[in-house]
């Protein structure tokens, strides 16, 4: 699913370059703990979180996250948005709560997947 569809579904505000919204999202991960992202998040996931700080951007870079959605109407500071733009990291915000945002995306077919978990067809092209 493309990020721009997610923008519509979750009624998101986009804080970064519109061109990044063509990015295709395969997996999602939701947490407020960055340690969890480093431990179990699938490389290249979309992160849905209520934690708004610089650390999220650094973790996104390490894990090659495809984008970040901040929930509960939390607005990132200007310097966080600037950093995301520098790194071509799509950054969205939604008024929806974490549980609700995840539930909606799940009903639209998005799923989570753990780090290094092999593809379902067994090809091993999991990263």
């Amino acid at each position: 699913m493309q990020l721009k569809e997610i923008v519509n579904i979750l009624e998101c505000k986009n804080h970064t370059d519109e061109g990044l919204l063509w990015r295709d999202i395969e997996y999602c991960y939701a947490t407020d703990m960055m340690s969890d992202v480093l431990k179990t998040c699938k490389i290249g996931s979309l992160l849905i979180t209520g934690l708004v700080n610089q650390q999220v951007i650094q973790v996104a870079e390490i894990m090659d996250l495809k984008g970040i959605i901040f929930v509960s109407g939390k607005e990132p500071a200007t310097e966080i948005i600037e950093k995301a733009n520098e790194k071509n990291l799509p950054m969205l915000t939604t008024e929806k709560q974490l549980f609700e945002a995840c539930g909606i995306l799940y009903t639209f077919g998005l799923r989570g997947r753990e780090i290094f978990q092999k593809a379902d067809d067994g090809t091993g092209n999991s990263i």
């Binding site: 480093l38 490389i43 610089q54 650390q55 650094q58 973790v59 870079e61 390490i62 894990m63 090659d64 780090i115 290094f116 990263i127």
Partner: peptide, 28 residues
């Protein structure tokens, strides 16, 4: 600057052409 050293290491490994799984494990 938290995380900046790890991001640099990740870039070096990627540029050298180390395989992605190793790059991620080292970076994490």
């Amino acid at each position: 600057n938290a995380g900046s050293v790890s991001v640099k290491i990740k870039k070096i490994l990627k540029e050298i052409g180390i395989k992605p799984e190793v790059v991620y494990r080292v970076s994490i």
